[in-house]
Amino acid sequence: MTSPHLDAEASGRLNRSAAFASITVATLLLGLKGWAVLSTGSLAMLGSLADTALDLVASVSTLLGVWIAAMPSDANHRFGHGKAEALAAMFQVVLISLSAIGLAVRAIGQMFGKTTVEDPGLGMAVSALAIGATLALVAYQRHVIARTRSVAIATDNVHYSADLLLNFAVIAALAIERWGHIPGADAVFGLMIAGWLGWGAWAASQEAIEQLMDGEWPLEKRERFLEVAGRHPALKGIHDLRTRTSGNRDFVQFHVWVDGAMTVTQAHHVMDELEAALESEFPGTEILIHPDPEGLIDEDKLGAQDLTVDLSDASPALLAQGEPRGFRAT
């Protein structure tokens, strides 16, 4: 769901600005870290360089994802292009995973070899510069995410947030090599960084997978939606609630019970009022409502079971059953 203060075009512009910012930072850091790797020979720094190279590729894919996702609906994509963001996010996850595996293999190999780190002070200075640039980027990305809720920018943010720890780990590894004279420290930190990247890839994939699989909204959000809908005095009940998210757009459809004696015109007026109330609380959401006469339940979905309960009893356990939900408006 986008911010109530942003329309789709403004949200798209803000997402693209965040993607361009990450591309700029990744390009700058790629040059600095490449120079540092050639000067120091540090495995931890090499891992950081590899991650930054993938950052650049991932940021380009993020830009493409948010650009496509911002395109308006057309004849072939009536629900919009929002899933382009989730696809871009999954591409990033693949790149992060490959980076983690490659770094882990190299770190394990170095543990059984003999290597030395040259000029660790240079590597530490470059990592400190990388931390400063990444902190600024992460802060801006979080500002954008708060306003657009972009899953692609959020995944990019997870990656760059992990980079902060990665750069601190590089500084620690080089400091130990320089002043601690502990052999193998660089390889150990390289392996730790690989593990952190792998965990970050797993965590970043979850929301993208939920969107691609049309997962339901979080439980708290569904309950709040039911609560807002239940305030309308003409509603006798709600059932068969279905929700999903695609990029920065939310979709919801459900059936409502109304007085069976209502005319079509009266029922339509009630639906308009209900949509207006819901859109004020859930801006940018596409809502589809199907009115039914009170007591009617689709038997192919619910059988003869009566799922109508008081709103106060619409507990998490009821919503978590995975069956169409219902409550009686009070």
Score class of each variant (00 low, 15 high):
Ala8Gln: 14
Ala208Cys: 05
Ala139Phe: 10
Thr285Phe: 06
Thr155Val: 05
Pro291Glu: 01
Gly260Tyr: 03
Lys221Asn: 11
Val57Glu: 00
Val94Cys: 05
Ala130Leu: 12
Arg222His: 03
Gly184Pro: 00
Glu323Phe: 13
Phe251Trp: 09
Glu118Met: 15
Met124His: 03
Gly326Pro: 07
His81Thr: 01
Trp257His: 08
Asp156Ile: 14
Lys114Pro: 03
Tyr160Met: 15
Phe168Glu: 11
Ala320Asp: 14
Asp272Gln: 09
Gln211Thr: 02
Asp156Arg: 14
Val66Ala: 01
Asn76Pro: 05
Ala154Phe: 12
Leu63His: 02
Gly180Ala: 00
Thr27His: 13
Leu319Phe: 13
Ser48Asp: 13
Leu235Val: 06
Ser312Lys: 15
Arg78Lys: 12
Thr24Leu: 14
Trp35Thr: 14
Ala130Pro: 06
Ile153Lys: 00
Gly198Asn: 02
Glu273Asn: 01
Ala26Glu: 00
Leu318His: 13
Ala128Thr: 10
Asp292Thr: 01
Ile193Tyr: 03
Met213Gln: 14
Pro72Phe: 08
Arg142Glu: 13
Ser127Gly: 11
Thr116Met: 07
Ala21Asp: 07
Ser127Asn: 09
Pro324Glu: 00
Gly41Asp: 01
Thr115Leu: 13
Gly303Leu: 01
Ile287Leu: 08
Asp313Tyr: 14
Ile131Tyr: 13
Ala234Phe: 10
Leu30Gln: 11
Leu318Asp: 08
Leu6Pro: 03
Asp250Trp: 13
Ala175Thr: 06
Ala136Asp: 07
Asp306His: 05
Met1Phe: 11
Trp199Gly: 11
Glu85Cys: 03
Ser99Met: 02
Leu49Thr: 08
Val138Pro: 11
Ala26Tyr: 02
His255Pro: 00
Gly47Pro: 00
Tyr140Val: 08
Thr148Pro: 06
His5Met: 08
Arg224Phe: 08
